[in-house]
Design a protein around this nucleic acid. Structure first.
Lengths: 353, 353
DNA sequence: CTGTTAGCGCCTTCAT
DNA sequence: ATGAAGGCGCTAACAG
């Protein structure tokens, strides 16, 4: 039983007007409608069960009120939280979200980009663990493209105002975490990085490494000893997927390395680490402290409660929406982030307060 | 700088053909195209950067290859996992997902339903913590509507084949969890239910209550003592939001009640309970066992590892896709669910193995 | 095999 | 204040 939806002409027939008037009533313009006529149209709309067809409107006007959101893993609470905030923010502004999960796969990203373009999304919010994103993607996008985890402003000739970079400052965030551990007395701080060869992994590693460098009195064995060494070549650096399992598997290695502090690049990793340490009977933070980048509202409920760098996702979503709707100001967005100290890292030492 | 997208007529002009031929090439039919012509068209497509406009196609054909997904809380890992599986399954079939979060708010649900309808989604997957869903929503939907957490098949005259109920069997699931605790020697098993007055909360409570009833030798004080008592009137029943905090706050009450086992209706609740118990220094499961409905791949990484009823979301998404595409068979879908015993509940007693 | 044509549902300019 | 008409980009008959 295929239901035929009522169209404007159905409404017009019932109301005894033209389709134009119906359109005026539905959209509140651009021409005025007599009070009496409007009432007849409204009645007809109710009677027929008319509902505007967004597709037809978009085809005609060239605007879709539709946003594309691409993330690398919807199973990551940080990212699903991000999507949730974006949905909330944009829905209230009349926009709907196409959500896609790239599974951190460049080929899939391409497919998704094609899809988003052919669906005429008005804007695109893009979270890829790698940079830069598909080049032609942006070239062909009409509307603004927001790069959620840009390491630096993503420019491009002729695209001013259409590319918006969100500088999550992964580097400074990780550096901040590292400093917090140092201030709490950790002397041998390891870093659990993301998958190999990813720019974002590298950025986070760099933040950790540079924070260590700038502090004197730290265990020299962190550095391989030669100038020009990369963070990844440090003996205290370990690479793992951004998953619980990645953290779990890496945990033992940090123990073997004699670390008394770990900076995880991800809440999921940190959760895996905590689970493993608890299983091993290690005392956190007495034996070893753990902090993570991008913690979520789940962090207070781990055992022990996870300390970490928290991003104000609501505020970020709001800024993104503003940037998308007022395309004039396309300066990079820097989200609010703050360190939440919880049980998983030692108390601040007196001399540092 | 507004970019004008190439259309079929642009391609046709460059290729020296008509737009019809371009359409044939793009869609591989319905009429054959000479090899030589096809090549010219393909070249022209590349040259012009043509990309089909899904909106125009949908307007004409009346099919959108677009699916609407509505959940009550994207921050709930079980639900975001569900969305992830659906996205994966439908994307590979050429469908895109509009994702919306109702925040468990009926008014918002209505708005979302309107939006989905006006966007002409080909189908709708609907997860509401309450039943039944907005009536007119289904009436006006062209395509199939999948009710993710139906307590019983949702029928309706004239809608055969368009309503698909996924019977999560929340009741039997909760009953199964309760039985597992009984088999492990728990004698005083409490239930942490969802928000008051919700059908799903009631179903879960019923599963717990009936499982207790059927077992003899249990603490009689579970029941208020009179026939006709509801599960919710039991002293061992507590109601709380489906959140970490809900579990955390309820935890103490279960201790006061002298429970040695808890069936949480949700992983988030269970996580909150575990966190609180750990903080209180209770031994799990020695002092008290905890199990949860709808655990995710996060459960192995709590401390202690959380036991619970796991749903095969991949398989479920697959079944849903099948049901949506082959509308003939609209019998209810019953997802695969299985109990995963982990550290958070005691070992099976010998006599029960 | 290829071209012509008629809409899909809607908005808006231009007449009335 | 209202109506008629054109066209957004595309597909599917129907001609050729």
């Amino acid at each position: 039983m295929l239901i035929k939806h009522a169209t404007q002409s159905d409404v017009a027939r019932v109301a005894g007007t033209s389709t134009a008037v119906v359109s005026y009533v539905v959209n509140g313009g651009p021409r005025p409608v007599a009070k009496e006529t409007r009432k007849r149209v409204l009645d007809a709309i109710r009677k027929t069960g008319y509902r505007p067809n967004t597709l037809a409107r978009a085809l005609l006007t060239g605007k879709t009120s539709t946003l594309g959101v691409v993330v690398s893993d919807l199973g990551n609470p940080f990212l699903s939280g991000m999507v949730q905030c974006l949905e909330d923010e944009f829905f209230t502004r009349g926009y709907s979200l196409f959500v896609a999960d790239s599974h951190d796969d460049p080929w899939r990203e391409k497919q998704i980009a094609e899809m988003m373009l052919s669906r005429q999304v008005a804007g695109l919010v893009w979270y890829s663990v790698d940079q830069p994103p598909p080049a032609d993607l942006v070239r062909d996008m009409r509307g603004p493209v927001v790069f959620l985890n840009a390491c630096e402003p993503i420019g491009g000739a002729g695209h001013e105002g259409r590319r918006i970079s969100v500088l999550e400052n992964e580097r400074t965030g990780t550096a901040g975490l590292t400093e917090e551990l140092i201030r709490r007395g950790c002397r041998r701080i390891g870093h659990l990085g993301g998958p190999q060869g990813r720019i974002n992994s590298a950025e986070r590693a760099r933040g950790w490494y540079e924070a260590l460098r700038e502090k004197s009195g730290l265990d020299e064995s962190v550095f391989a000893g030669r100038e020009g060494d990369t963070p990844e070549s440090s003996p205290l650096y370990i690479s793992a997927p951004y998953t619980h399992e990645g953290g779990w598997n890496a945990a033992d290695k940090f123990v073997d390395l004699g670390c008394d502090g770990i900076v995880a690049s991800n809440e999921m990793q940190a959760v895996g680490i905590l689970a493993r340490f608890n299983r091993l009977g290690l005392r956190i933070p007495a034996d070893i402290s753990v902090v993570a980048l991008h913690t979520t509202n789940y962090a207070p409920y781990t055992t022990p409660a996870l300390s970490g760098m928290h991003v104000d996702l609501d505020g970020l979503a709001h800024s993104i929406a503003d940037a998308v709707f007022e395309q004039k100001d396309c300066s990079p967005i820097i989200p609010n982030a703050y360190f939440s100290a919880r049980e998983s890292c030692a108390e601040l030492r007196d001399e540092c307060r």
